[in-house]
């Protein structure tokens, strides 16, 4: 038999190890972000001369000032906001409606549609760039934000649909049936009862699609050639010149690019963590 003291010691050791491992993981995951910040405030003249240090001996905001006032970065940034915002919006609307249909209805060809949507996720994107370019070019959709929004939406809809479907699956059918008996049509029941309860799911989908579109590089690079339609991941490459890489400015741009993604998640995190359906049914 173990004594109380021994078991307390064991418990402390258990939780200690637990937290230590979590802390190690968080440090591992966040270290690159820390380095991004560190390099962005390091003056150019000491970037290479100081060696590897955890924090530079002097800091400066020059990189930020340059990026915001003298580069095309604000323009790229706006393009990214437009493309990611609309992609997230359109994807969510389509995914909500399709996800609901998958969750609630039995119809002919459902399995085929699901299979086709899964298949679209299996190909490496590189394979698809040439055909997509050939399709978009005659339509005048290359080198335009609209083209990017269409392509991103198309690529995100399947996954977002499955995501939304799982959220709808989690909402009991009884709720909309009750609403339909109370006097709603099915669509009204969807809009007034089911959608408000799916807000956490919609928020998660919005967040997922927004960040995916925000950081997409391959299509943005291949389908857009003019500076006016470039998004910020492409813009970051402009800090790489023939003669060198301007790390300070690039990192400053990177930190700035983090802001909207973080702000977006701050905005939706209330819904992400909310267990809104608690109490709907027994339990």
């Amino acid at each position: 038999m173990s004594t109380p003291g021994k078991s307390r010691l064991r418990k402390t050791a258990y939780w200690g190890t637990h937290y230590l491992m979590i802390a190690a993981f968080v440090a591992f995951a966040l270290f690159p972000l820390y380095w991004l910040l560190k390099v962005s405030v390091t003056p150019n003249d000491i970037l290479y001369t100081e060696g590897v240090r955890m924090w530079p001996s002097r800091t400066t905001w020059d990189n930020y000032t340059f990026v915001l006032t003298q580069s095309h970065f604000p323009h790229y940034f706006m393009n990214s906001v437009i493309v990611s915002g609309f992609t997230a919006l359109f994807t969510c609307i389509i995914a909500a409606v399709t996800g609901y249909a998958f969750s609630r209805f039995r119809f002919n060809g459902k399995i085929v549609i699901v299979a086709l949507m899964l298949i679209t996720q299996m190909f490496p994107l590189v394979m698809l760039i040439a055909p997509i370019f050939r399709i978009l070019a005659p339509l005048g959709l290359t080198d335009s934000l609209t083209g990017l929004i269409i392509v991103y939406t198309a690529f995100n809809v399947p996954f977002a649909t499955f995501l939304m479907q799982s959220f709808f699956d989690g909402i009991p059918k009884d709720l909309e049936e009750a609403a339909m008996i109370d006097g709603n049509t099915r669509f009204e029941a969807f809009r007034r009862i089911i959608l408000p309860l799916t807000l956490p799911g919609i928020a998660a989908t919005l967040g997922f699609v927004f960040t995916a579109a925000w950081s997409e590089l391959l299509f943005a690079l291949m389908l857009v050639s003019s500076e006016s339609a470039s998004t910020f991941p492409v813009g970051l490459l402009s800090f790489v010149s023939k003669f060198g890489v301007d790390f300070g400015q690039m990192m400053a741009a990177g930190v700035l690019a983090l802001i909207p993604a973080c702000a977006f998640f701050l905005l939706i995190q209330r819904y992400l963590v909310q267990g809104l359906t608690a109490g709907a049914v027994k339990g």
Binding site: D174, L175, A178, L197, A280, K282
Partner: peptide, 9 residues
């Protein structure tokens, strides 16, 4: 309903 189906919001 068996599950009561109260609107949680």
């Amino acid at each position: 309903f068996q599950s009561y189906a109260l609107y949680p919001h």
